[in-house]
Computed example of a mutant assay.
Amino acid sequence: MEGNLKEYEKLKSELIKNIEAKKGLEEEFDRLQQDIYDNETEYLSGNQGTSKNNNIGNIIKGFDSFNKVSRHGSDLSNHGFTNDDRLFSLSSAVFVKQQLDDMQEQE
């Protein structure tokens, strides 16, 4: 009986440690997903870099604006994007569910 109690306490301690480790990993995963979302937003909106004409295109939307900027010198930095343009952050079903839950909580 004494041996069973020691084994139980050992397993209980291990379980608590593993639950804490899982929480830490989940928090890190959430941070990484948010970083991906934020970086993707920055990339799609063209806010990276210091050039005034930094939104001449990207690999997702294409580079149709490149000729317009170089030919006319106009600033096209206000090109919008939609969630349909998000290839990375919306590929995670868990992240999408979290975003929807957050939006519902705000309402």
Rank of each mutant, 00 (worst) to 15 (best):
S92K: 02
K17A: 08
K22F: 04
S91C: 06
G62S: 01
R71M: 11
F88I: 11
N83Y: 15
R31M: 04
Q48D: 09
H72N: 15
G46W: 00
T50N: 13
G73D: 03
G73V: 03
D102I: 02
Q99R: 08
K12V: 01
N4H: 07
D35Y: 11
K68D: 11
N78E: 10
E40N: 06
D75P: 05
G80M: 07
D35T: 09
L5P: 03
F29E: 14
N58H: 02
K17P: 01
D35C: 03
I19K: 00
V69P: 05
E9H: 12
L90N: 15
N67D: 14
H72T: 15
V69L: 07
L76W: 13
N18I: 00
I60G: 01
M103I: 08
D84S: 12
V96N: 08
D64Q: 11
N83S: 08
K68S: 12
D35K: 12
D102V: 04
R71N: 12
K6R: 12
D101W: 05
V69I: 13
L76A: 10
E105P: 02
N78I: 04
F63H: 09
E9N: 14
K6Q: 08
G24Q: 03
F95N: 09
D64H: 12
Q34W: 08
L15F: 12
V94I: 12
F81R: 00
I36M: 12
K12G: 03
M103L: 12
F88N: 12
R71L: 14
D101S: 09
H72Y: 14
L44Y: 02
S65Q: 15
K12R: 15
F29I: 07
L100G: 05
H72G: 06
F81T: 00
G3V: 10
G73S: 06
E28P: 07
S89A: 12
S77E: 04
K22I: 01
T41N: 14
F63S: 00
N54E: 06
V94D: 13
N58M: 01
L5Q: 09
V94H: 09
E28S: 09
G73M: 07
F63W: 13
R86M: 14
N18F: 01
I19L: 04
S51H: 03
Q99S: 04
T82L: 08
V96W: 07
N55W: 03
E2V: 10
L90Q: 12
S89K: 06
G49D: 05
S65D: 14
Q106H: 08
E2I: 08
K52H: 05
K10R: 15
K6T: 07
I19M: 05
E9R: 13
E9M: 11
E40C: 03
L5E: 09
S70I: 15
L15C: 07
V96S: 11
F81G: 00
N78A: 14
S45K: 01
Y37M: 14
D85W: 05
D75C: 10
F88W: 13
V94S: 15
R71S: 05
K23I: 01
D35W: 10
Q106G: 04
L15S: 06
V96R: 09
